[in-house]
Write a protein that binds this DNA or RNA. Structure first.
Lengths: 250, 250
DNA sequence: CGCGGTTTTGACCGGCTTCAAAGGGAGTGG
DNA sequence: CCACTCCCTTTGAAGCCGGTCAAAACCGCG
């Protein structure tokens, strides 16, 4: 049911790059919390928007379906993925509370959307937001955030080793570190438990790896005392800082 | 000056995927030409927008620079890239005529921008567009297009072999095929010459490969009669269709 | 012709995939 | 409570793709 072996990331010369860049923040999205957008919240209150409550692993739409609605994650997480004909899958994005998804320029969805966890999703008619400029401003901010997140993920897929990918992935779930902007090495002891609400297969498809490699990297980190795993989806990091150092950003 | 070896893409089971997806179009952006946006063109005419004319390999901004302007490509191509501290580089996007770039949610650019070719770029003040809803609509469309393009690139980096990446890259430059939406196998003979306005290093950094691998793949395609190379940046494809089949989308 | 840059080619190696089998954990039924 | 199944995960062994390092070829250009 599968196939194709594939590649290797590269080490790269940056010969003529003119200057050294700024502080090396973690590659996760450099997002800051969106300020409340009154036009948007008012719209939600008055509109025909409906709130859907979904269980884990429910599909919202498929690639190539007509894109007549846009979606806002209220709670939980949703993954967006693409398939290629021979069965390979790539998870292209993971969205959570406040994120918009399902917008399309072509009229057809360019990927499929499936909940990772139980989730609430607000479904809006595409045309309802197309009219209003004030709403577009909010949509805009969400799109820019997604783009910055995709840029980070591009670097991960193009240039990071398996270990760096898994470490980066773990850091995604640490509040105030990684994704939201690292606040620095954090004083005192610095342990943390993250809950992975994804199967190994989903993680692998997100990180551009195989299920076996993800498993091996986690086992190796466990062996080295960097993490401990309980119940398979609860991962305890003895030192967040140590994991962060493995991401390839420091 | 570099380093890290890296990974392998994966073959993936898609066990519980409910249905077979639609037609396998090429993974390049599924973009269709934007309809003329009168609000936008009027704005450009009346605004303080300035048009900059640049040579090849000029830098517009660096990662972490303040993002006070947004940019519109008028002609030529611009690449966006990120560096990680040890020198690895990943080109995260390549933009051309009509595309906007340099928008940021955080106030700082999340990547650097450098021209690939001689180019004209319109530079707009960030605040000039922030006010107007009508303009946001145009910005929105551009952002959605970029996101769809990034999704395609994510699949390429996460799941494609070196040969598939290079073939996909070549198809990018074939008008009416790949990027803009494949019009099908094309009747009659179907040869085409594309001009690569990028060095091997830039191509490698875009495709998540090394310079040597890019070179080897191209040599191999040449040996097999699929392409011929003249003057190093002119690549003649004997049959576009044949190259397209190597992209991994068919 | 010689020189500096990029590109190509070669030989080797290693990380990740592949293929295969063993190990858990949860649910069901006796 | 235990046996059994199913599914996911982990572990093992082997192979290959692409990276690494190094040298040769190419290509303007002075």
């Amino acid at each position: 049911m599968y196939l194709d072996p594939k590649m290797t990331a590269a080490a790269v010369e940056v010969a003529d790059t003119p200057r050294q860049l700024g502080t090396g923040r973690y590659a996760g999205t450099r997002r800051r919390p969106l300020p409340p957008d009154t036009a948007w919240t008012e719209f939600l209150a008055s509109s025909r928007a409906r709130l859907e409550t979904l269980g884990a692993h429910e599909i919202l739409f498929h690639e190539d379906d007509a894109a007549n609605h846009i979606y806002e994650v209220v709670s939980g997480q949703v993954m967006l993925y693409r398939l290629i004909n021979d069965g390979r899958r790539q998870v292209v994005d993971i969205v959570s509370a406040g994120d918009l998804f399902g917008l399309s320029m072509t009229g057809l969805h360019d990927c499929s959307a499936e909940t990772l966890t139980a989730a609430e999703v607000r479904v809006l008619d595409r045309r309802d937001i197309e009219g209003s400029g004030a709403l577009q401003t909010h949509v805009n901010r969400c799109l820019m955030t997604r783009i910055e997140s995709l840029h980070s993920h591009t670097v991960l897929l193009g240039r990071k080793s398996a270990q760096e990918r898994v470490a980066s992935f773990l850091m995604r779930f640490v509040p105030k570190r990684g994704v939201v902007g690292c606040v620095g090495p954090a004083v005192g002891h610095d342990d943390q438990t993250v809950v992975l609400r994804m199967t190994r297969q989903e993680i692998a498809d997100y990180l551009g790896l195989t299920i076996e490699t993800v498993s091996r990297v986690l086992s190796d980190m466990k062996r080295r005392g960097i993490i401990s795993i309980e119940r398979n989806d609860h991962i305890h990091m003895a030192s967040v800082c140590r994991v962060c150092k493995l991401t390839g950003m420091h």
